[in-house]
Amino acid sequence: MNKELIKNIRLGFFVITGTALLIIALYFIGNNSNLFSKTFKLYARFETVNGLKNGNNVRYAGIDVGTIKNIEILNDTTIRVEMSVEEALKKVIRKNSVATIGTDGLMGNKLINISPGTADMDLIKDGEEIESLASLNTDEMLRTLDKTNKNILVISANLREISQNLTDSRGTLYTVLMDTTIARGLKHTLGNIDVVSNNILKISDDLNDVVSEAKNGNGLIGTLVKDTVMAGDLSKAIKEVRSAGEQINTSAGELKQILNKVNTGDGTISTLINDTASANNLKRSLVNIDVSAKKLPALLEALKHNFLFKAYFKKQEKQNKK
């Protein structure tokens, strides 16, 4: 009987130890997925979630604070992600905190990173939505730029034709210059170039701002761009865009001058025609424009591949719409 008792005690010990280990394991795993700590709900809308799954981590400034609870499709372009976040984070996350989708390590899981908001905003409440910033579709934006660029090419080709005519066929030059319709067309073309190049300038200015922000580590893109080498490359690219635009601008300015001269009267026409220097000038300007315009597609192509600007271009487009 005594032997029996000892066996039963051992069996009890065995079973209890096993069960305890099981419970401990479940607790730790559960703890890991925030099953046992108090949490609150938080929402964010995205256009794409890049393969985010239920149970992926939510981080606040790099610290694991919760998990993805649910991902639902609201409509064809909006996906709402429900996050379950530790109660303590209510004291930190603000209404202008921004959620971004990122990756854990080189090949790790997708996750949502919540970046801190600014102190002047109210704190978030249970079930509220925070803003999101995701890698959005900006191909469209770049495509528009590309189109603009192609237009410039066409225009500059036209200009070259005209200047060719000016230099080569002296016989017909007179008639050409006297033809006001052509002159009007040319003027119109130049106006277009002006607008385009102004646009390019503006964009490159904006890009500049972005890059400098990125360099300083500020702003949203700043959090993404940590690689200074990459930022350097970017600023170089932007400078090139800018100089190209400037070149187009100056060339267009020169052209304008010439056309103005042509337009002002007979007296100057002869001098203009005889003045080979100004003809040469014109030619050079046109070549410049051509070169600049040819450079642009390559630059834009380079920009397209830089995913960091996708978001930026998107924003730009929105502003344009307004």
Binding site: L22, F28, N32
Partner: peptide
């Protein structure tokens, strides 16, 4: 060690195996 083990372990790892 155990923190790292459990951090990478999910219920979906543990429950079916159990």
């Amino acid at each position: 060690f155990f923190q790292e083990v459990f951090e990478s372990t999910d219920f979906s790892d543990f429950v079916p195996a159990f």
